[in-house]
Design a protein around this nucleic acid. Structure first.
Lengths: 199, 199
DNA sequence: GCATTATTTTAATCGGCATTAAAATTTATT
DNA sequence: AATAAATTTTAATGCCGATTAAAATAATGC
């Protein structure tokens, strides 16, 4: 258990580092945040970060992985509830928004994927495409079960994911308004999907 | 006319510089593009750019201004057509998308606003807020004239602008598919706005 | 053609920031 | 308490890329 406790301690700190980094990237942009900034937020020295990540590039990479995790978890949980297509979309959005603006901490959605090293860039793009793909599958399922209107799933998917991913750019409210966002935003995004009965 | 022609020549080159810069920023991210990259795209040396912009910060700033211009023009033109609220939104989206993906060249939508110098950052944020505000006014007008369903204009506006601004992140198609995007995407975004007759 | 102005290049400089190595300190183990 | 392992700091290093100054070339006006 000793070994184990040490390991989780490390993992925990590492997670705090990633959270702090994501926060900084969201707030000050990528080129605008130095490792010193991230470290300062944790009461550490910039050099200390190298105990947890290999370099800045890996730091960004891990932030992206974290972001991908959040999205994947939300989607999986939504799917597991066994609702129809439209309701699944709605539930997924609710969960994902909750994780984005809630206590799980901010997630960096930024434009620095191209500057990742090839191996990492490919991995992140793969995960991103996979996520989009799964979302489209939910839309297709919804069309099949009659809950979602007939639409181009590719474009519709991109439209909804765009709205979702854009949230961190404009939302900087407190927990109360975050809750309102989580409640009302999914409905707004789903309104355009509703299949008209008898159409 | 001599003076004039020299001036426009300068303006033209400056515009090409901005276009190249926006393209690079879109493609390789901000920190991933050096001035040398931008210059190379024009067959110039990095130092030559300083004849057109004061420094890299100003280059980004001007890219943002260009992006704001594109959005403002599209919106103004849509408004000038004197349609009802919903149709105005639809037309605006069509025009804006056309400018984004069409021959007007790429527009950098990136996360580097925070690293602008205060004066520039405030200006860009002002323009951004102004644009959102005007969009919300169109939504309000649509609600008033009965073409748009009763909704939270703030959230709805952010939802639509998010989808719109996200386009450059996933769309890398040719002119043909760009045309399809311009034709079909606005409708997808507007579907959720339609006021249900008799509701 | 000559002078003037506009544009670009060459060749340095310069600083910030990522990165590293070794030392110091804190924490765990027995 | 003593040793070992884990964590952080101090203090350099190094490099890339932005920036600048001065020189070179190209364009323009007379």
């Amino acid at each position: 258990m000793a070994k184990n406790s040490v390991d989780t301690r490390f993992e925990l700190q590492r997670d705090r580092v990633l959270k702090a980094a994501a926060h900084c990237f969201n707030q000050k942009g990528f080129s605008g945040t130095s490792l010193k900034d991230v470290a300062a937020m944790l009461g550490l020295t910039d050099a200390a970060l190298y105990y947890y990540v290999k370099n800045k590039e890996e730091l960004v990479y891990l932030c992206y992985l974290r972001a991908a995790d959040v999205g994947r978890d939300a989607m999986q949980r939504a799917i597991n509830e066994g609702l129809d297509g439209l309701a699944t979309v709605n539930r997924y959005l609710e969960l994902h928004i909750g994780l984005m603006v809630g206590d799980h901490g901010p997630v960096a959605i930024l434009s620095e994927i191209p500057s990742l090293k090839p191996r990492h860039r490919d991995e992140v793009l793969r995960l991103s495409r996979q996520h989009s793909r799964r979302f489209e599958e939910i839309l297709e399922r919804g069309i099949a079960d009659g809950s979602i209107c007939d639409c181009d799933v590719r474009m519709t998917g991109n439209a909804i994911m765009g709205s979702l991913n854009w949230i961190p750019k404009w939302f900087h409210g407190d927990a109360k308004t975050a809750a309102r966002l989580q409640r009302e935003f999914p409905e707004i995004l789903c309104r355009g999907l509703v299949a008209v009965r008898g159409a």
